[in-house]
Design a protein around this nucleic acid. Structure first.
Lengths: 304, 304
DNA sequence: TACTTTCATAAACAATAGTTATGATGAGGC
DNA sequence: GCCTCATCATAACTATTGTTTATGAAAGTA
């Protein structure tokens, strides 16, 4: 059984004539006759009674047309689905990020969702080092990491440059500092740190050690959000990715203090499979990330 | 888009391999590759991501397989429908008859329905003279009439021989008559007649006239059923098709009186289109009518 | 009865799908 | 790290299928 033959049968029924059906389908009349015959042979039943003036459906013909209509409806629905998918009125997109890079995604998610509300966008927390493999395996459509995986089958363009910001609460003695502060002056501070191993944390610990400055970590918290809250309440100071504290810094809830001798800047990269198929939804996300990234780069440069 | 290509895609997804799918479908591997590619070209989307070890469905692929499954399910359902139709577990059959021939159909309907309860059997009352045209036009699948239409495009085999029975109520003076009664003795009877013009009635009226016997019609009734009831209550006598009174005659509610000089026997014919398609349901009905008819013929002959 | 319309059929041609042979690519074993 | 095996892609060729052109048969219509 063949969809185009089914279409032909329906045309014959609709037009009540083989020749008119042929005309409408831009075929010749024998082609229509043969199509109907093919169907009849496939079904082992006569589908049209040609004995009277107008072709009439037989009982079997009624069954066949009913099912054929269903099938063609499915095909039409599929075409519609695909159009939607292409127009991003449908689809699913899973982006992997770890806790700190997730902050970078927030404004992107917002923009993406505003533009294409019908695409289901999922940000999946994942261990930074697993993300490349997950992108490659297809578990993730895209990934955001703070390092270059240097895998030949992954694209990993830089989409953002973030840096660690040293934050304090507004009443802190350093809060108003205009000029960069030396790291040595932080030896007396009580630090609130992330209890997850990350490149940022490693860098911080090793830099302090190198300069012989004591790093006094008094509290460890599982999320950046909780770290910011503690800092805002004056319980300590912290290093956090700047993007993750942007809102609080703007609002004056937290203050950033510029530092000498400490520059923890990491480019964020958007990982996508080089060979695999990027969905329309993923491509749109990447396209959206690019200009936003440019802005972000300019912004961080200006501030720095 | 093509159902067999859709099947191929599903096989690839199921087997997670082009070559295994090919094996299962009794095709070569390139045939499978081409089928998938055809689908992809038809959709304008990649459907399978071949970059990883196992082919993976893309978003578009998920949409396509979902719809393809639906379509194939429809096709399977259609096959099932056709099997049912062929096995008479489904279908519809419309048989045309007029009021008197309908009685002939009663035992047939019973037998047919008992054998194939899933076939919707409709007995449609129709004017006798219209039935041939309705069979030909397809409004009726079959027709039963008491005359030979002699249309070259209708089959009209005799399936039953019925005759007019002269019926009286059990207490009637003629009720017990062993030997045939002459028509002249009926001149004093009060007749209950059908108020519909029919070959039977015409024959009766003209026979009485020819023999100079008065035909005293005191009541006219619209249905045979009502005539029988009046006769049973002793309100008069009547001529009715024997088949229509068979039950009452057997039960002794009515008595048949054999007559001299009066033999109104008409063969009932089953009309079917000679060129058009007979449904399985109709053919089964005709096949059922044939042996039953033979019995009936023997039976009436015996009684006569 | 001749004419017209409609569908069926046959032969030739065109298009499509399938096969064989071979190449590219990546995974796994040594 | 190199080789081998497995898997899918590609190209050329072949087979199959579908379409057209040409014609015939049947039935309705003037």
């Amino acid at each position: 059984m063949n969809l185009s033959d089914a279409e032909t049968l329906l045309a014959v029924v609709r037009e009540r004539s083989f020749s008119r059906a042929a005309e409408q389908l831009r075929r010749t009349q024998p082609a229509v006759s043969l199509a109907v015959r093919r169907l009849e042979e496939a079904c082992g039943e006569r589908l049209l009674d040609r004995s009277s003036k107008q072709p009439r459906l037989t009982g079997a013909g009624v069954l066949v047309t009913r099912r054929a209509e269903q099938m063609l409806r499915q095909r039409a629905a599929l075409e519609h689905d695909l159009l939607e998918l292409r127009g991003l009125q449908r689809g699913k997109l899973t982006v992997g990020a770890n806790e700190s890079t997730a902050f970078f995604l927030l404004p992107l998610v917002e923009a993406y969702h505003a533009r294409w509300p019908e695409v289901k966008l999922e940000i999946r927390r994942s261990l930074s080092r697993n993300i490349p493999a997950e992108v490659l395996s297809g578990d993730l459509d895209l990934g955001v990491v703070a390092y270059d995986p240097e895998w030949h089958d992954l694209n990993a363009p830089i989409v953002y440059r973030d840096r660690l910001a040293f934050i304090v609460y507004p009443g802190h003695p350093l809060a108003g500092a205009r000029r960069p502060v030396t790291l040595a002056r932080l030896g007396a501070e009580r630090f609130i740190a992330h209890n997850v191993v990350s490149p940022y944390r490693d860098f911080t610990v090793s830099t302090f050690r190198r300069l012989g400055v004591p790093l006094n970590i008094t509290v460890e918290m599982p999320t950046i959000e909780s770290i910011k809250q503690l800092v805002a309440r004056g319980l300590g100071v912290a290093f956090v990715p700047r993007i993750s504290a942007a809102r609080e810094l703007d609002a004056g809830i937290l203050h950033e203090v510029p530092l000498h001798q400490f520059r923890a800047e990491r480019p964020l990269r958007l990982l996508s499979p080089r060979r695999g198929v990027l969905s329309h939804a993923a491509r749109a996300f990447a396209d959206l990330a690019q200009p936003l990234a440019a802005d972000a780069v300019r912004y961080t440069k200006k501030v720095r």
